[in-house]
Design a protein around this nucleic acid. Structure first.
Lengths: 146, 146
DNA sequence: ATTTCTGTAACTCAATAAGTTACAAATATG
DNA sequence: CATATTTGTAACTTATTGAGTTACAGAAAT
């Protein structure tokens, strides 16, 4: 299938909501920054709401973060949008009669789990606040053109 | 799309080749352990050969590891089969006119890269030899039934 | 009252991985 | 040497799934 950009797009939405919290935030406006359709934005916002990351009100264009951006990590957003799915996929159908086929899934599963957790720990080290501040610094850096 | 099991299946093939190096190793035999078709096995073996992990000879059912299993890590196999692709996908199409859309790709890209490398380091910590020995221990453990 | 929004369902389109069919070319075997 | 076996590969089919689209009910804003 097409590769999922839900995670990245959701981070984008959350950063946008926080940075532009003082203006009117219709799904249309957010969509123009993410360069997608308002329906896709609303669909993602539904997921973020269910995960307790934002609060929205039907008919009103004012989504808010449900928690302080220092208290939201990239991992929280990852779990909300992609779930705790494997990063590396086992082949679940191997021959149980064979020494290799009968044992490899358990062994590989442990190795994959370790690698996944290492990546997740990194995601958990970065907060939405970190991301927003870095974006704002990069923007200033652009404008100082040197 | 369907999720790729090339990585896991390739590890399976390599472990199988090493463990059963003294018997005839047709793609048919390997396929019966992986529970897939011989064509899929040959296709994967083509990739592993190109990556310098195995040596094969057309018409002859005797693939060999091209390196000592202590010198092949899971990361080597990952790169051979999946390439160094992102673990977390950026949305490459965001509005460059917007503070968020214009900076988020660079910032997120750095965070994703760090997480990816953390996972890859773990994969690089495990050799094919480690995997094989663990499989053989688990098999003995099964048979001792207690 | 009318317009603007959100929330959601249903559908289309596209991407891609495994599995299948087919066959040429190399090797093994009696 | 003739035949059977096997690898290597191309072309095609099938299944899965995410983004994008269309449509519309219901809530809020004006």
């Amino acid at each position: 299938m097409r590769v999922s950009t839900r995670f990245s797009d959701s981070i984008h939405i959350l950063a946008f909501i926080e940075i532009y919290k003082d203006i009117r935030l219709s799904s249309e406006v957010i969509a123009s920054s993410v360069e997608t359709s308002p329906v896709v934005i609303r669909r993602l916002m539904g997921v973020l709401r269910e995960a307790g990351l934002i609060a929205t009100k039907q008919g009103s264009a004012e989504p808010k973060l449900a928690r302080n951006p220092k208290e939201i990590t990239l991992l929280d957003i990852y779990f909300a949008t992609e779930g705790n799915k494997p990063l590396f996929e086992l082949d679940k159908k191997t021959n149980p009669e064979c020494i290799v086929g009968g044992n490899i899934q358990g062994v590989l599963g442990d190795y994959y789990e370790e690698a996944k957790i290492a990546a997740q720990r990194k995601l958990n080290d970065t907060t939405l606040q970190d991301l927003i501040e870095t974006i704002l610094v990069k923007e200033k850096s652009k404008k100082s053109n040197n």
